[in-house]
Design a protein around this nucleic acid. Structure first.
Lengths: 149, 149
DNA sequence: CTGTAATAGTTGGATTTGTAACTAACAAGC
DNA sequence: GCTTGTTAGTTACAAATCCAACTATTACAG
């Protein structure tokens, strides 16, 4: 590639960031205005809603979120009675997190919103494109994660 | 879609965020360690490097960045002598920004890094996939931007 | 002209995040 | 059982971001 051939519109990290920000915006406003949640809190809520009881580190591994983020998100979610913590009997460092009835209700509501939201996004693509998009995004997440140099 | 069909791995905003974060990480470390830059500063630098002289609001429109972010990025970039500001004679609210020799050198260096970095990412995809990916990301940026509800 | 609105860019304060150090509990070697 | 190391999660402080209010300048209506 010649020096002057470089364009921001071909730089993948930039493109990905733009698309990610743009496509998160409206959904973000919903969980923010409806439940006063931050992105980290929404993510924790969704992981608990989808996978049931989890520990903070399990969420960290799945979501690739740093433990301090999770710690703070869990703190706020328990304050608002969306999540309960129970100590593990065998290993008292570990806490098992799960949704309260209220947390489950919020999750159900937001999951439905997310599904509709996602469907609207998907509708702007044709199915073949959507499949390729999904596959490449997963690949990039993994490849870039591991470091490819 | 049935209620229990929902999966985070199919939720586009989530996928996009994961891929964006993962694929930005290594590059971020380079401009951070090499020039002490933040993401906002790198973006401003790249826009000036690519398009030459611009005003802060022009950068804001192109990069979809809020003006306060740009203001602070420009401030730091001028402190470090990467960017110079010159008042517009016709309209004295406006400032024209351009790279100093030093800023141009940093841009040239980082552009080369970005090109190699991008090539490495692209190499994990086949060309057809890459084309679809790029097209869909651009589409999503626009569609989601305008609001599709 | 003069008052009102719009635009370019900056600043202040609260909120959020990142980094590193910390506490508490367990594990393993000796 | 005591030292050393590891893991789960929290906290403190600095850095970065967001939002709203601000200054300065231009535009425009009457």
């Amino acid at each position: 590639m010649a020096d002057d051939d470089f364009q921001l519109q071909y730089f993948l990290p930039y493109l990905l960031n733009q698309a990610a920000e743009a496509s998160s915006l409206e959904f973000q406003q919903i969980y923010k205005s409806r439940y006063g949640m931050l992105r980290t809190e929404w993510r924790v809520l969704f992981h608990l809603g989808l996978y049931g009881q989890l520990t903070a580190s399990e969420i960290g591994q799945r979501a690739r979120m740093h433990k301090t983020k999770i710690s703070r998100a869990v703190h706020r979610l328990t304050e608002r009675r969306f999540v309960t913590r129970t100590r593990d009997d065998g290993d008292r460092r570990v806490e098992h997190l799960s949704l309260t009835r209220q947390g489950q209700a919020a999750y159900d509501d937001l999951r439905a919103v997310a599904q509709r939201y996602n469907a609207a996004l998907m509708d702007t693509l044709d199915p073949a494109e959507a499949a390729v998009l999904r596959r490449t995004l997963l690949k990039l997440s993994d490849v870039a994660q591991e470091g490819f140099t």
